[in-house]
Nucleic acid binder design. Sequence first.
DNA 1: ATATATTTGTGTACAAACAACACATAATGA
DNA 2: TCATTATGTGTTGTTTGTACACAAATATAT
Lengths: 225, 225
Amino acid sequence: MNKQSIRLSVDAVVFGYEEDHISIVLIKRKYEPFKGQWAIPGGFALNDESLEAAVERELQEETGIKINYLEQLYTFGNPNRDPRGRVVSVAYFGLVRPDAFKIVAATDAEQVQWFSINDLPELAFDHKHILEKAIKRLQDKITYQPIGFELLDKKFPFSDLEKLYATVLGRAIDRRNFRKKIINLDILDELDEKVSRGSGRPANLFQFNPEHYFKRKKEGIIFEI
Amino acid sequence: MNKQSIRLSVDAVVFGYEEDHISIVLIKRKYEPFKGQWAIPGGFALNDESLEAAVERELQEETGIKINYLEQLYTFGNPNRDPRGRVVSVAYFGLVRPDAFKIVAATDAEQVQWFSINDLPELAFDHKHILEKAIKRLQDKITYQPIGFELLDKKFPFSDLEKLYATVLGRAIDRRNFRKKIINLDILDELDEKVSRGSGRPANLFQFNPEHYFKRKKEGIIFEI
DNA sequence: ATATATTTGTGTACAAACAACACATAATGA
DNA sequence: TCATTATGTGTTGTTTGTACACAAATATAT
């Protein structure tokens, strides 16, 4: 067998949600190739660490961000995707809670920044392609798995959830029907707490109950928006 | 950066359907490790070929099978999954038409064989794990994408489609409602051909019309079983 | 303090989709 | 020619989805 010389990297598209828009974390590259350009965080896997461990390590090193949800997205293996040679990248898909926004802001000097997905800079490598796939995954998956909660504070008013869905799916959502549907799934705990944000009637807070969700799922209830 | 020594392989879980059961292609390993054990086809990627090309080449070399549908499944990167050292494997998911059964049967001497997924031998490496993921993908995807047709002859009687779904999903299907649903999608051409197989009224043949499907999809029709 | 603007919270009626179900037809084979 | 087997088809009741408006609770401006 001839000698294989392929290097393996991991990359992560990390989504956040705040103020009615979806953002992702980008880093500004310090070295060639694509020096000075924005890219999604990532790097080479070590010989003895799992792919998940590699992503988590790279995210920690490059952004200091506290990831909340992580899953494999896709593996990109086009022979020409990296000018340094053959690099196959296993891309991951991550979600963080709103408080992670501040963490990144604090390490601003390290060239880490949130970008709204409606206002992105040019990206290094094939990262635009990776990102497109990630956005599609987010849009698809949010409709059949309860991952939206991973983008909100643990306790949230119903309107936050509704706006998140409207933003991600890019369409209006009927407030009453949406609420009815979610409530009927019986996977949220309604708390005895209210929050008032600006004018308007204060909203009751809700909390996703994963145990209840899994129980309901086994009973045959299906999450679907 | 320290020297990375990770090797990259590709593997393929190839599904076929015939006589009311789902089968996959396995090969008997000629070399260590796991010599003599059954495994899903695959091998190391070459430096300058895409991952898809690598899978197709390996499938060709090892099984001679004519693949009909191929998509990436998942990348398995556990550091201990291969006793030879660190090997990360990009697994693919494939479907073939019934006529491919015969092709494999013809190359029987090469230790290639179809196994019903209800009657599998022990598998090498973490291939059982890969297979489980593939089966889940098949079951999920067949309900929201028209991939079932890739497992049938181009022209098929409706009952074949119905039995395929019953087999894959592991549950009975109401014949009338199923037919109604599929017909209403308006993605099949009804042919002026009949086929008679054994006793019973001869069945009309149908054919999947991909162009029509994509047109309908753009119009907002969603495939869903 | 009062009026206005803003956001939350809630129910009903109509339409569409789903689920359950039986019998006639066209062939084979005994 | 009679029994068996598989195909082909429609209706009805139930469930789910969709459209839609007004009262309650607060903040803000006057």
